[in-house]
Simulated scan of single mutants.
Amino acid sequence: MEIGSILLAFGYGDSDPKKIGSGHINETFLLEDKNGKKSVLQKINTKVFEKPELLMSNLVLVLDHLSNSDYPYNLMEIIPTMSGGQYIQDSKGLWRMLSYMKGKEASVRPANLKKAEVVAEGYGNFLKAINTLDPKRLHDTIKGFHGPEKRFQQFVDSTEIAAEDKLEVSSSLIDHALAFSQLTLQYSKCCDILPPRITHGDTKASNILVDKSGEKVSAVIDLDTVMSGFIMNDFGDMVRSMCNTGAEDDNKLEAIQLDLENFKGISTGFLRAFSSEITQEELDSLLIGVKSILYEQFLRFLTDFLQGDVYYTVDYPDQNLNRAKVHLKLLLDFQKREELFIDILNECLGQLDE
């Protein structure tokens, strides 16, 4: 179906869709009807979400649960088709329409400790509210989404089919990927003792909407990867995405490191919101989550480069290679300064007890 037919099916035939968003996976369009009402049209990538109907089932359940709980933020609404359906599915994917959420995206990298704290507290409050729902009620929208074991095997497989020029240019990265493989075992052992939780799955700052001041959360968005998981993954992904001192694909690697101030803000905000729910085992796992997520994302970008950029959207040929280099630099930085991160986390925990 052409996008015009999709719009007609949702009753927006007179709208001019404008592409928005910075995500790597789905396509998102902003619509405005003749009365000025805004909505969001999304095309779900079915190469990533192979069973998008399960994604929609999860979304309905999550929104219903949060709307009937003491949840402090605004929630999106699913806008039905003219025939009353929740989505339209064609050969190119699944199309859905959601209400437009007012607010601005938090900066990809929060400008200071306070702004990082606000974002992390938002995620902490989301996790606190959604974890009154049984994780078993949610489908896995992407099997094995987080966890370096699966990503390591995909990486190994990609080295066996990659073109020679790609193997040559990434040889140093491949060596590092193999050298850090012990993290897969450390992660697996950690998972064995952690309670199953519902997690957000994509805790970057841009999935938090804030008010004009940037100091108050209005909504948590992008709920497509909300499913059973471990708290350490959401914490680790906040650190990965919000503490990078450069761009995700920065080619000036000498300037890339993890921002300790933002790490402190993340730790303070998240623990303030979620400390009443977190177990000791989960606390002990948080920094393992940071290492694992950095390694996992390094593997994912490197694998996609070796496979010919089949997963992530790229704007130039070596973008995934540069993304992999950045994440390796972040992982090496964390390894070098791990004691500092331990001290900061303990300091934040101590402040909660005062």
Rank of each mutant, 00 (worst) to 15 (best):
R109T: 12
L61H: 06
R137L: 15
L98Q: 14
A116I: 07
P135R: 03
G124E: 05
L133I: 04
M97F: 05
M101T: 03
K114E: 15
N68D: 13
K128H: 14
G93I: 02
A116L: 06
N112P: 09
L59A: 01
G103I: 08
S83R: 11
K115T: 14
A106S: 07
N125H: 15
I142G: 02
S83L: 12
G93P: 04
N68K: 15
I78R: 08
Q89F: 13
S57F: 12
R109I: 15
A129C: 13
S83T: 13
I79A: 00
Y123K: 00
K115R: 14
N131I: 11
Q86G: 14
G124W: 03
M82H: 07
K136R: 15
V119Y: 11
K115Q: 14
K115W: 08
N58Q: 03
G103D: 04
E117S: 11
S107W: 04
S91D: 15
L94C: 10
D64H: 14
D134Q: 00
D140T: 10
V119S: 06
E77K: 15
Y100Q: 02
I130R: 08
K128G: 07
Y123R: 00
A120Y: 08
S83Y: 10
P72V: 06
I88M: 07
K104D: 10
R96A: 05
